[in-house]
Design a protein around this nucleic acid. Structure first.
Length: 565
RNA sequence: GCGCCCAUAGCUCAAUUGGAUAGAGCGUCUGACUACGGAUCAGAAGGUUGGAGGUUCGAGUCCUCCUGGGCGUACCA
């Protein structure tokens, strides 16, 4: 761990009847900087010492002696607080960042382990809507974070290219389809057909039955059905690629649901052999009542399989292929129960790795307080959102920085970054209200704010005109603002780990906002480049470090850090 | 009906996983560029953390109940 905490542990150990592990566990960082750098709460000792905690704290603080790295020890209420030697802290942190540079905070904890991440997974023949943003950017960010921690990562785009919806589409296409329209504007045409199907099916319920039978044909490999399906799929993929290119996201594989068709019979057979399956109401199911879960349907009465069957099959396939350490499903919380069932069935099948399956769930994106329903046709295209944001970025650049070179590229990075950052900055489980004003806000706690800070740092480094020196006079870091920045920089590796443990890139978002905030405050108050060469060298080293960390942090979120904007 | 999730300032969100006086941004009001980028910064106002109990040294965080919203609950995904 960090040597400052080490020293505090050492000092405390002599006076306190606790193991070093216990001490380490309760050492914390005070909520406010003015209280100190680290703190040791004395509540735990109150019982064994039979003294009130604030008394223990004050006694203890008198007995403890400052050492090499710790400068001050004092008590405030029930806490013993420690203040570190800020010169030493600066030296320690800044040297580390300078040496590790673009791999500061990188870790080998995941070495030799594979994490498979199933995310994005749009449905073929449907538009790529704003609703798909979360899974896409969350999955991508988690991929980058775990990779940074040394894991081998595999991204799978589990395309929704199978299921009864294709029966519906085929029915709609055969009834109302227009070949010319389809080839000229495939996604909109397919989308209209899909919406129309649901409208008509309300009046004419037989359509549903017809759709089921078409899907069954598809599943049996009937030629006409398969041909139509393949065309829909080709059109859709082309369309999705446009969005992925904008976000600069790529996948290691695009094995969608249909990929697993050939393995389905095996899965069902295996489940039956293991005595888990039974016939109920003409369908083949696994009874999970014992576990307080509804039955898991494997095969419908018309013999067609269901998504649970496919997910079970896919998990087995993935384990056999990747021997993953963990398999993450970045899928909305509406499917929570579904995954509980799937995981349970795999566990009952005797797969010990069933415990390594994680449903990384997240809330809805709502629009005007309502949940958007693709079936009803209300959808906001992700591509439109991204384009609009890029346009706005371009307008702002024209106004604020008219001489900037390659405006288009920068506007692109800022516009996209704004959308991605906004989405990632809310913790997964909460619903997000999609609001144009909010997405297109480039001030305050936003992606562009962080990017702007980065551009400013780059600007300083350009002005400096010299290579950054690593050996500076660290005793020049005496200001509170500098100390705040350095402490934030020290935090970065911990934050990466925390975002990985909780599958929560939002941790990094708020970290980057904090870091940008402390730097901007410093910048506003203090001059960086002055005639005092030593002071300038020192501050520039700090600037370089902040720049490195912001750039790194943004890249873990899948966001670009332009040098000018 | 049952199960899961959510509820924090007018709005959008934090809160080091049970710790110190619940913090930011937006919006409102007031200020800051003849030196490094004003997409910035400083200040003011804004709170019974949905409600009621409980657990303990200590609760926004844990347990119970209630209210409001969302999702799910066997042939959609």
């Amino acid at each position: 761990m960090n040597k400052f905490v080490e020293e505090i542990k050492e000092v405390l150990k002599k006076e306190v009847d606790l193991s070093t592990e216990e001490i380490e566990k309760i050492i914390e960082i005070p909520p406010e900087e003015k209280l100190g750098d680290y703190a040791f709460p004395c509540f735990l000792l109150a019982k064994s010492l039979k003294k009130p905690p604030d008394r223990i704290a004050s006694d203890l603080s008198k007995k403890l002696k400052p050492k090499a790295l710790i400068k001050e020890i004092y008590s405030i209420g029930p806490y013993v607080n420690f203040r570190v030697d800020s010169r030493k802290l600066a030296e320690f942190v800044l040297k580390e960042i300078f040496e590790k540079d673009k791999s500061y905070g990188r870790d080998e904890t995941g070495k030799g382990k594979t994490i498979v991440i199933d995310f994005s997974s749009p449905n073929i023949a449907k538009p790529f809507g704003i609703g798909h943003l979360r899974t896409t950017v969350l999955g991508n960010s988690l991929y980058r974070i775990f990779e940074y921690l040394g894991y081998g990562c595999v991204s799978i785009n589990h395309l929704g290219d199978w299921g009864t919806q294709f029966g519906k589409l085929i029915v709609a296409y055969k009834r109302w389809g227009d070949e010319k329209k389809l080839s000229s504007d495939p996604i909109i045409t397919l989308f209209d057909l899909y919406v129309k199907f649901h409208q008509e099916a309300e009046k004419e319920p037989e359509l549903e039955e017809e759709a089921r039978s078409w899907f069954k044909k598809l599943e049996q490999g009937e030629k006409e059905a398969e041909g139509i399906w393949q065309r829909f799929k080709d059109y859709s993929l082309k369309e999705f690629e446009k969005v992925y290119r904008m976000l600069e996201i790529s996948f290691d594989c695009y094995t969608g649901e249909s990929f697993y068709n050939k393995y389905m019979d095996n899965t069902i057979e295996e489940i039956q052999k293991k005595g888990l399956a039974e016939i109920s109401q003409d369908a083949l199911v696994v009874d999970l009542e014992k576990y307080n879960l509804p039955v898991c349907l494997l095969r419908k009465k018309d013999e067609a399989t269901l998504y649970a069957t496919r997910d079970i099959t896919a998990a087995i396939y993935r384990y056999n292929t990747y021997k993953f350490h963990k398999l993450l499903y970045v899928v909305g919380s509406a499917q929570k129960l579904h995954f509980q069932q799937v995981f349970k069935v795999l566990e009952l099948m005797g797969y010990p790795w069933a415990k390594d399956l994680v449903h990384v769930d997240f809330g809805w994106i709502k629009f005007e307080k309502k949940i958007m329903s693709t079936r009803k046709g209300d959808v906001i295209f992700l591509e439109d959102v991204l384009n609009k944001s890029v346009e706005l970025a371009k307008d702002i650049i024209k106004k604020k920085n008219p001489d900037l070179e390659n405006k288009d590229k920068v506007a692109f990075d800022v516009g996209i970054g704004a959308v991605v950052f906004t989405d990632l900055s809310t913790k997964r489980q909460k619903d997000i209200n999609f609001d144009w004003d909010e997405v297109l806000d480039f001030e305050g706690q936003t992606g562009p704010y962080v990017q702007y800070t980065h551009a400013r740092l780059c600007s300083l480094l350009r002005k400096y005109q010299k290579p950054v020196k690593r050996k500076v006079d660290f005793s020049l870091f005496s200001l509170e603002e500098e100390h705040s920045i350095i402490k934030k920089l020290e935090d970065f590796p911990k934050k990466i780990k925390m975002s990985a443990e909780t599958y929560e890139p939002a941790v990094l978002c708020s970290y980057l906002l904090d870091l940008s905030g402390v730097f901007n405050r410093f910048y506003q108050k203090q001059r960086i480049i002055t005639d005092d060469e030593n002071a300038t060298d020192a501050r520039i080293l700090l600037v370089k470090s902040v720049k490195t960390v912001i750039e790194l942090g943004l890249s873990l979120l899948g966001i670009k850090a332009p040098e000018r904007m």
